[in-house]
Every structure is written in structure tokens, then in C-alpha cells.
Nucleic acid binder design. Structure first.
Lengths: 181, 181
DNA sequence: CCTTGCTATGCAACTCGTTGCATAGCAGGA
DNA sequence: TCCTGCTATGCAACGAGTTGCATAGCAAGG
């Protein structure tokens, strides 16, 4: 498992509280590694007791204190160690693919319902693609004057864009196939 | 969770034992939903006690008995019910993407090591793509005389092929980006 | 001959991830 | 005014997934 490491990367890019991390996981890094606030709070505590991060309580009026986390030298060493380990083979879980194969064991009404569901799913991913493209224009308008971190963030975003485009094309193929049955 | 449903689809396509299912999950359906033999055995037992599948002990000389599982009417009903539920948003976990962003916090030696790792990872996925393409030629040589189940299996396989091609292109982009830093 | 690996199933312990719930004050809209 | 929703953190329980190990006979290669 490596939620720890995703958190280290996110905190190195920008220190913040558990809550802020949870928000970020919904947007930025969470496109490639998702996590709920519960997981993040729990893991942050473990990381703090292991000395990978420091926290500082920040009083806010009328609200519970915020804990602002930042990465320690030890945490950074841990990240570097992990970076040099081989990448684990991914655990693929593509529910839609299972449902499409399952549609062979449903009737016409079921397949019609699946078509509607694929259309909905496609629309969701079209929205995601547009969000990525908007973010790309905003954050990386000019590719020539970017620092190392930004270049790497950009290439990861390009991966997300390529994935969404591939997915939309495939979903069109799926729809055509389902409609011909 | 839906390992149950992936198992139902696989058993409907072809009944078999827990061990055979585990093999299949490594090859066919496991490309889109992976699981270890442990999970499969445990879930099969639960499914049997819930009446979703039946099993028949088959004696084999010199070896432990095999339990051949097949789907009951109830199991099929459960599958159909699940098929009509909306697709859950995927839990994305792309370790390599996190490592690439993390490379901003490593030194040149670390980035060189990451390039080597990406090259290795790329070679793995090239092998996967070739396996898919070989399987496609073998199982779907002529797209005109396929039954519903085969057409659906084929479109899912085309999804796998599209994914691997997209990934290889992106990895080339990643390598170029890392080498320019 | 010995070791490795395959078929075939399973237990036990552990970690990870999910879900439901709780607190608590503030802001904004119906 | 009331309700919803946001910031901000956290506990508890449960379900899912992983890892290590065990049994057991057979086949194949060095």
C-alpha cells in the first residue's frame, strides 16, 4: 500500500491540513490515487507517530483547530526509498467491463437499460475530460517556462487526458456493439 | 463490492472449480477484475451458502476432490439485479503516476532509476498488448459469425487493447519528459 | 535422487478501505 | 426561521483484500 506516499508527494507539493488533503485528493492527485477523509486522517496520525510528518495546531475562531502538516526529512527519505522500488502491478477493477460481459445473460430489456447506463457513464467522463482540458489551459499555458515539478505534473495530466479520450472512443464502440445486438 | 458478480459472469460463461476460476481470473476476466485464489474460495463458499451457486464434488485419483461450481437460478437473478444498478465510480490507483510526480522531490540519480523502471514497465505492457492481439486473432478471427456472448467479450477485449495502446503512447511521452529534465 | 512446480483446497492473522455517525459553529437561501 | 451545506476532525464497526502457511500427490528436469 502506498497512500502514505501519495500523501507525502501531495504535502511536498504543498503543505496543508487533513481536510485540505482530502479536498486535493478529490481533485488533483486523487485522479490517480483516491482516498476518503477517514483514511487520510488515520494515515496522517500514523505518519506523524512514525516521524514522517510534523503537525502544527492552528487556532481558528469559531471552528475546531486545524492541524497543518508538513513533511520531515525522514518522510522525504521514505518517499525517495519508495520511488526506487519497482512499480507494483495494478489491481484492475473495471466494473463496467464485467457488466458488459454479463449482459449476455440478461434479456433485451436489460441490455437496453445497460445502453442507457453507458450513455450516462460516457457523459460523466466527457465532463471529466473537459475539466482536465480546462485545467491544462489554466495551469500549463506555456510549456517552455515550467519547472521540474510542473513538467511532471503536466505529463501526468496528459496521461489522464489520454485515458479519458481512449475511454470515450471505446464507449462509442461499446454502444455501437450493444445497439447491434 | 462485486467479486461475486464477476464470478457469476465467469461461471455462466463456463462452469468450473475454484482453482479453475482463479486461473481464469489471471487470464481472461481478471484483466478487468482481479482476485486471488483465497478470495475466490471464500466468496464461493458464501455464495453457495446464499444459494447463488451449486457445487458438486468430483473425485480424482491421487488428488484432492475438485468442487465444480455452477450458477443457480437465484444466482442468475442476483446477477441481473446487479446489472441494472448504476456503475460505481472507479477507485483509481495509479502508482506510477504518483511516482512520476514524486520524482520532483528526488535527485538526478533517482530520476534515472525511474526512467529504467518506466522502460521495464513499458516492456511489460507491450507484452500484455501482444497477448491481447494474439488472443483476438485466435478467438475472433471473423467478426460476422459471433453470438451475443462472443460479441460482448470481443468489445471488452478491444477495450483492453485500446487501454494498452494508450498506455504505451503515454509512457513514451513520460520517457521523453523525464529525459529532458 | 532431489528439487521445483503444478493441481486443488483451505486456515489464520493482519492490514486496508468503507460506512455510519458525531460534534460544532458559521453562511446563505427558501 | 429553519434547513442545508460547508469547514474540520474524529470514533467505531464492519467488510474486503493480502500474506504466510499447510496439506498432498504427481510430473518433469537437472
Amino acid at each position: 500500500m502506498a497512500l502514505e506516499h501519495a500523501i507525502l508527494v501531495s504535502l511536498l507539493e504543498q503543505p496543508g491540513s487533513g481536510y485540505e488533503l482530502a479536498r486535493r485528493f478529490e481533485r488533483s492527485i486523487g485522479r490517480f490515487w483516491n482516498a476518503t477523509h477517514q483514511q487520510i486522517y488515520r494515515v496522517l496520525k500514523r505518519m506523524e507517530s512514525d516521524g514522517w510528518v510534523n503537525s502544527e495546531a492552528i487556532g481558528q475562531d469559531g471552528r475546531p483547530d486545524k492541524r497543518a502538516y508538513s513533511v520531515t526529512g525522514d518522510g522525504r527519505d521514505q518517499l525517495v526509498e519508495w520511488l526506487r522500488e519497482p512499480v507494483q502491478p495494478e489491481a484492475v477493477r473495471h466494473e463496467l467491463a464485467v457488466k458488459i460481459r454479463g449482459a449476455a445473460f440478461d434479456d433485451d430489456a436489460g441490455r437496453t437499460a445497460l445502453i442507457a447506463e453507458v450513455v450516462r457513464y460516457r457523459a460523466e467522463h466527457e465532463t471529466t475530460l473537459n475539466r482536465y482540458l480546462t485545467g491544462e489551459k489554466r495551469d500549463f499555458p506555456d510549456d517552455t517556462d515550467l519547472d521540474t515539478g510542473q513538467r511532471l505534473q503536466h505529463v501526468v495530466l496528459r496521461g489522464g487526458i489520454a485515458y479519458e479520450r481512449m475511454l470515450l472512443d471505446w464507449l462509442d464502440d461499446v454502444l455501437e456493439t450493444l445497439r447491434k445486438i
